[in-house]
């Protein structure tokens, strides 16, 4: 409910509100199976729908940006990057990132099998929950009631990369939205999810 309203409706409304005809997004093809099939220039109807079975052919570096009023295009310039590429690039180019990606002692509670960070008083504690200091970091950053942290000692970028390379679970496991069945992302995307 939370994600659908925000990510899908919020984004569609925001794009319509400002009249943006092309939106650049950071999605990568290695993230998920339906994204692996998506074009770099991904055409959307006036209702922001993605027609997966009928995508425009995309040859060489020739991108078709033609559209009529109301239609829009989502562009994914990082389509061919992998998660490791992103991390290495951040490392090489010294790009500033949110410190939450790096491990530190933070107040947390355990809920539904996930480690939730207690960021501030917007987060109501449930009965009997007492925040505990743990060395944690985040693999992905969504909205904080939805995003679980992992216990980690990786306090530098290279340590994070090291941990990522040695890990045996996929990157997005911490995110509640992806726990749905195969094909759910395709459906979300058809409805206008980025």
């Amino acid at each position: 409910m939370h994600t659908d309203l925000w990510k899908t409706e919020g984004l569609k409304k925001a794009l319509d509100h400002y009249g943006f005809d092309v939106a650049l997004g950071g999605a990568r093809r290695d993230e998920e199976k339906s994204r692996a099939k998506e074009r770099v220039f991904s055409f959307r109807s006036a209702k922001h729908r993605w027609d997966a079975k009928n995508q425009r052919p995309e040859l060489w570096k020739l991108y078709n940006a033609q559209k009529t009023k109301g239609e829009s295009i989502r562009v994914f310039p990082l389509s061919n990057w992998t998660e490791l590429d992103i991390w290495q690039y951040i490392h090489l180019e010294s790009i500033e990132i949110v410190p939450l990606y790096l491990a530190a002692e933070r107040p947390t509670v355990e809920r539904d099998g996930m480690l939730i960070m207690v960021d501030d008083d917007r987060f109501p504690l449930q009965n009997g929950e007492i925040p505990v200091q743990r060395s944690i970091r985040f693999r992905t950053l969504g909205c904080y009631p939805l995003t679980g942290a992992v216990e980690s000692e990786a306090a530098t970028l290279t340590e994070v990369i090291q941990e990522m390379l040695l890990t045996t679970t996929s990157e997005r496991q911490g995110r509640a939205i992806d726990h749905d069945s195969a094909g759910s992302m395709e459906k979300k995307k058809q409805e206008g999810y980025f």
Partner: peptide, 22 residues
Amino acid sequence: LLVDGLAAEREQGITIDVAYRF
């Protein structure tokens, strides 16, 4: 099943569109 990412592909057991893997 790893590479056929679209619902229609899994249902029909064929590859419709190109999938990129890394």
